[in-house]
Amino acid sequence: MRYDVTITPLPTMALFDLKGRAEALRDWAGAALPPFPDRPNSACGDGQGILMWLGPEHWILRADLDREQALEATLRPAEAPPDLSIVRVSDTLAFFRITGPEADAILAIACPLDLHPTRFGPDGASFTRAFGVSALVAQYTEGFDLAVARSYAPMLTRALAEAAG
């Protein structure tokens, strides 16, 4: 390996796309959601799930797949009021975990984001572009999680392997 990193494809996770005003979402979902992050492009976790603030009136809730059914039952996408949108998107993204002392080098190859700790904090999470396609980057202990559309997972597998050497 050219770089001292470990690249691990992650299993499918429960993902819910949340849109609308934060108060409305909180009112509807109650305790099912972790606290809302206080800064754009950051994440907040409660041990069971992570809520990432990724756009204006746009969050993604991430949890283990075995919580998908329970979350769906609590969030009730079909019954949610018209002024907020909840859509299960668990299958849309394929996640890869990149850890190790040189994880930042792989991310610098992949995407144009400035991921220096002074710019992208330990709770950082943002959409960006990786290897030419839309991607989600989230800080993880000793590394990063990088996700792309599931259809591009074979591409990302290869691109990360080539980047790591």
């Binding site: 190859i109 290897f131 030419g132 396609v133 559309a149 259809s151 591009y152 997972a153 074979p154 591409m155 290869r158 691109a159 080539e162 980047a163």
Partner: peptide, 15 residues
């Protein structure tokens, strides 16, 4: 070009 060569230049999407 960097890594964007061969299969990564115009990557396929798979179902």
């Amino acid at each position: 070009a960097g890594q964007r060569d061969g299969p990564l230049a115009l990557p396929w999407r798979e179902t």
